[in-house]
Amino acid sequence: MNNLIYVLEDNADILEIITMILEDFRIEGFGTVSEFSAGFSRHSPALCLLDVMLPDGNGLEVCQQIKENPSTAHIPVIVMTANSSIDKMKEKGTADDYLAKPFDIDDLTQRITNLI
């Protein structure tokens, strides 16, 4: 079973914590959109966990690209954000799930398990 999860998160501390939380999964972390895109073309992850505010782009836009591409649209995407306007994102966004920061580690694990 493919248990590769791509995490797009520019904050190294959070990326490290997520990696520790999801110790049962294979985690590949990216700090920028460009790094993520390069990695995405190499492998097909079982799930993508995307932060929204990134140095060179926006996680919501990355999600949209994944969902618009027929060859990747099936990959579940969870968008996580510390932004207070998460409800607006849910209305307009194309992600499978949304997660507010700071999150509960059990909640994060549960949502990922639900989608894989």
Partner: peptide, 20 residues
């Protein structure tokens, strides 16, 4: 909005660390 975001970022790491 930024202040809230900036505070939530280390809090996210802190909360994750403590829960782990």
């Amino acid at each position: 909005s930024i202040a809230s975001h900036e505070l939530k970022t280390p809090v996210t790491a802190l909360k994750g660390s403590l829960q782990l």
